[in-house]
Design a protein around this nucleic acid. Structure first.
Lengths: 333, 333
DNA sequence: TTGTAAGCGTTATCAT
DNA sequence: ATGATAACGCTTACAA
């Protein structure tokens, strides 16, 4: 079942069939309907490989993420896949893990599969050491690379990101304004966005004349119980804190559980702000105040940008989106 | 940069290059290393389309799921993608939503993309009306179809599923044994697995001589707050229940929040069991007792089965996996 | 408006 | 062990 079968049955040449297939205007209405009807009768579907061979493209975007089971990335994947499909593009997904080596390997793999563009979802793809990002810059010479919540400068590289720095700056400011003086900052990783979040927190403290104490900046695995236990330890060591600002809702949930365990009252003498405004934020009692990083907007902007690139429209190489602070019950404001 | 360039530079024919590419034994060691070296120098990568055209396959599996942002499915996608990649297969992902029409559309789409097999992840793909599943049976004539946690009988269709019926049967039994007499069953949808879960619950009640009351079987959107509010309403209406068995952890979290809101003590006068043993189970205080449906095992079994099919090995058309009951703090046992 | 024929880069089947 | 060459099914000049 191929284009020849259709052309034979319709009594036209394969070129005409191809034209119908590709919506060329140079086909008489009569022939077009005839061919379409024959296609339908035969249940014909064009062979994607042959088409890809001829066109050098296959309407497919490669999406890389470190871990599709992370709720933030899971949502991103959802929005990306849906959005791309709306433009007629398929998505091929790669979960890379977080080692640089595997990231590079999958990057090459997608590249060799001749995807039309590559979307790197999440802030995990940009390494601190600039040399380690070189492979991305190189590859961008051959296909557009989109970063969703990551930043890298380079030709044919487009970034859409949430203004994490302002978000934590604002959030920390609100905590301070509501009376908190010893705000613990909990984070999971030293990514690009991780760095920004941290600096927002630090600047807010400085801006209010509060000391930035290194021992109030704690790294923690992205895990509810790990966060709870970390806070318990700090508590037992006698470290005093009256608020937690977390780089992820998971950690903030851990903070709620810590407060329950040691019977501190939220938000009266202990405030908590999470990040991502995920379902987790609403699982706890009291429910979490959380920063909404607006994944959906991020993803749809990324896709709009990509389509612009495909259409030769001039698009910004970097788009910033402001975060929202969703107030719930773990803060006094 | 193609096979001709390599053949020219290596001074051999393209056939030889192709043989090297495909690891044919009919190549002298000298020629092989020479060709490999030239490939390396030229940075040659074979064109996937041409290859697909010739072979009719592209080492890619289509994965369909209703919503990749659902934690259960997100995990499934992760395990499937990783597992398939381990066998050298790419995954192309489709999030279908839950309407039959779009499911069919994406099914056709993946089919037309000539994926080597189709994996339907989650129980949302099997409709109650047998006619509506006909398209799957038809398509299975042309490529293997794998159901992860769904069941459909048909040629070239392979199912791996969690024994949901036994799981809820066992869980409800434990609740009854621990003194609960009015167990509310909360569920989200009438899928295949949904039906099984429900019947496990019903049989357990019957088995213990307890009445199965229709008004104790409640449908609820898969949403923490919706579940909480539903229980609040029931409570206000004066409906008495001393336990909730939920078809999803999300609903169980809602039950915890309900208990907090009306100040019922867990587990002393109110027990809760969730389903899926997701991160949600550990977000609440007290933490949820939950049924672990063992997605990872499900997915890896599905992949093993698929590879068996590809290799012409005889594989079971249906594999059942027993669930675990993870005891935490929302139950008395 | 339509048809012919030359690619596209592989794999596979012949010979040699 | 190696080389010619015919598929594979499509797109796209170029001709008509």
């Amino acid at each position: 079942m191929n284009i020849y079968d259709v052309s034979k049955k319709a009594g036209v040449s394969i070129a005409t069939v191809s034209r119908v297939l590709n919506g060329s205007p140079n086909v008489s209405e009569r022939t077009r309907t005839l061919v379409l009807q024959v296609m339908d009768e035969l249940g014909y579907t064009p062979n994607v490989f042959a088409r890809g061979l001829g066109l050098g493209t296959i309407q497919t975007i490669g999406i890389m993420c470190s871990d599709s089971s992370d709720p933030y990335l899971a949502h991103a994947i959802y929005y990306l896949e849906q959005g791309l499909r709306g433009y007629g593009y398929d998505s091929i997904l790669c979960c890379t893990g977080s080692s640089l080596k595997t990231k590079q390997k999958y990057f090459e793999l997608l590249h060799s599969k001749k995807v039309d563009a590559l979307i790197l979802a999440g802030s995990k793809f940009i390494e601190m050491n600039p040399d380690d990002n070189h492979y991305i810059i190189e590859a961008a010479k051959e296909l557009p690379v989109l970063l969703v919540n990551g930043y890298l400068e380079g030709d044919n590289i487009y970034c859409t990101l949430c203004d994490d720095r302002s978000a934590t700056h604002h959030a920390a400011g609100k905590l301070i304004a509501s009376g908190c003086r010893s705000i613990l900052y909990l984070y999971t990783s030293h990514s690009y966005s991780g760095k920004n979040k941290l600096s927002g927190y630090q600047d807010a403290l400085k801006g209010h004349g509060l000391p930035v104490r290194e021992d109030y900046i704690c790294q923690c695995p992205k895990n509810v119980l790990a966060a709870r236990d970390l806070l318990m330890q700090l508590h037992q060591k006698g470290v005093f804190f009256d608020a937690v600002l977390a780089s992820d809702d998971t950690l903030a949930v851990g903070a709620v559980k810590y407060a329950h365990a040691v019977k501190r009252s939220i938000p009266d003498d202990f405030s908590i702000i999470g990040y991502n405004n995920s379902v987790y934020a609403v699982c706890t009692d009291p429910e979490l105040t959380s920063i909404d990083s607006r994944v959906e907007a991020l993803c749809s902007t990324a896709i709009t940008t990509l389509m612009g690139v495909f259409n030769g429209v001039s698009v910004p190489s970097r788009t910033n989106i402001a975060a929202d602070l969703i107030k719930r019950a773990t803060t006094k404001f």
